[in-house]
Design a binder for these strands. Structure first.
Lengths: 334, 334
DNA sequence: TTGAAAGCGGTACCAG
DNA sequence: CTGGTACCGCTTTCAA
């Protein structure tokens, strides 16, 4: 920048103003500068700019598992929204490990990002205190914390659980089991939706019909597979299973088929997430669509507005509506 | 930092040295400073540091599609390797669009990242010139450019193609088709492996047996599905198909089954990538393992060594060996 | 419409 | 072992 200024007999200030297209610059001067910038393929140094403005034009995203395509889709939606305002996205996969997640929060915080987005696996809100202290705007994605006022974007998990369960009921299931997820709001919500649906239809919950996968954020397949084997040992055996997410459902399907049973005739299965490979599975999987991309986009917009806002605004909660995508695994059985 | 220095009656220089644990600091002083740092939960401002050292401690990764789990796995392996040296990773998904990719290269370059990693969809090496001009070390991932000396980490695609094709031959296929990928080195290599394998076994290539998916980096399923429908119209019809990647293979499987044919009895199918859901597909898919995570890890290490090195080293090419993972879709047919 | 001076929060280099 | 000084590349403020 200094070079450009010198070459053109201008001051760095003038050049700087042209770059940020400040209004009070002579048209002729502006063109000369612009021309030279193109020629040199000059790019302003963001680090220097960040140092003085305090804005880095980058945001951070922490997810439990990037390989889970739900989060990958959220990430894409997000990065799309941010890109338009020339923000970049730092992504960190915490491997479903709360400690690692805390470390990553710290690391990203030290980078003075303009905002943070987290699909958290924490059990307490402890780690968000540090974010608040640093006054970095943040939004929770997919998973929220009750009683903590924070920005949030996700689907209505209670509705998701209810919809899934009612769908099973509507195709004729009478004994519906639920394989729940990790200790996160999503799992709690879906479970509650499940319970609500059973209650509404005056269906009883059989003993042992609600069980948890070991580590549902990673190794979901194994969790689902193991859990289903337990369910198969129960008497009476369930005739429908609502799974916390699709990867678990895949493990469930495999376990059912291994046992020589049919889907959906013997047991119907529904998952949650509507992942892209669902329709090509051994038994095409019915699922609850979570609008992953929309979540990313909405979160992106929210975060941008948070950054623009000078005054810290009232935390906002955006709840998207889930919907059923029926496939073979819950084809009407009766 | 200034505050800490003042409070403790030291200079900022001393504090700075403690932070970077410089050797020449009195033990007592060091402890005092460290204590205060903890208390204040002080985090050095990376932007400021970057400005003077010229190192941002962050690297960029550009992939064609983050939802393709191959790239998600690479990203995780990478971020793992970098994290250990406290580097952060900026990830950008270019949606299979070469123009967007170029823009992203520019954007990331302006952030003065310490290194760039790209799984490129470019057809020319043009865009890498700008990276080289800025003297930013970069590593090509998965896809390389012949005749361009650049750092590269990926699998041996020719071997992958050969292995896959020979596997089909070994299970009894006689008329093997290939659905190739986009105009990238991976597709070229796998195709070459396919051709080599046929030649070695003195098998003829039937007319129209090599065809390309429309847009293999995104919408792979559609590409595979369409291509397979064309293949099914040929006479003689192929009895084995080697697909550029697994998502394509999924579309292929679906098309074959829709036509009322059996896999592998009528047509055997093999893909490439060994994605986690392969085993749970309608027909469990045989595939060539691409060692996605290992690619990420190796690339991470390479990139770190590049950053450490003061002198630009001789470009290094790391080629991992692929291997066959046989499943139901190629169970011996004879 | 333009530019000089003063930092942003650190680090490098050398002198004490 | 400790610290003064200059300066990284840019923006901000204010005067010309």
């Amino acid at each position: 920048m200094k070079d450009i200024a010198r070459e053109l007999g201008l001051s760095v200030v003038t050049v700087s103003k042209v770059i940020r297209n400040h209004s009070d610059i002579g048209e002729e001067t502006r063109q000369r500068v612009l021309k030279r910038i193109k020629e040199l393929n000059y790019q302003p140094n963001m680090a220097a700019r960040a140092l003085v403005t305090g804005r880095t034009y980058s945001a951070g995203l922490i997810v439990p598992d990037l390989v889970h395509s739900f989060f990958a889709e959220v990430a894409i939606g997000l990065s799309d929204a941010l890109r338009r305002k020339s923000y970049s996205l730092l992504i960190s996969s915490a491997e479903g490990d709360p400690d690692l997640e805390r470390q990553e929060i710290k690391r990203l915080l030290s980078r003075r990002l303009d905002a943070l987005m987290i699909a958290s696996t924490q059990t307490t809100v402890e780690s968000f205190r540090s974010i608040e202290e640093q006054k970095v705007p943040y939004v929770l994605i997919d998973r929220c914390f009750l009683g903590t006022p924070a920005n949030f974007v996700g689907v209505d998990d209670v509705a998701a659980g209810r919809l899934a369960t009612e769908h099973l009921i509507s195709v004729g299931c009478r004994r519906i089991a639920h394989i729940r997820g990790p200790a996160a709001s999503t799992a709690v919500g879906r479970l509650e939706g499940y319970v609500q649906a059973l209650a509404r239809h005056e269906m009883s919950q059989c003993e042992g019909y609600i069980l948890a996968g070991r580590s549902a954020d990673v190794d979901s397949w194994v969790s689902g597979h193991e859990a289903m084997k337990k369910l198969l040992g129960l008497d009476p055996r369930p005739d429908g299973v609502f799974c916390y997410n699709d990867p678990i459902a895949v493990g469930v399907i495999d376990a059912i088929l291994e046992a020589g049973l049919r889907i959906p005739e013997d047991i119907a299965v529904i998952g949650c997430g509507n992942l892209h490979f669902d329709r090509s599975l051994r038994v095409p999987l019915s699922s609850v669509d979570q609008q992953s991309r929309a979540i990313g986009e909405r979160a992106g917009k929210l975060v941008l507005s948070l950054i623009e806002a000078k005054r810290p605004a009232q935390p906002k909660s955006i709840l998207l509506e889930p919907n059923i995508v029926p496939r073979e695994s819950t084809r009407r059985v009766a």
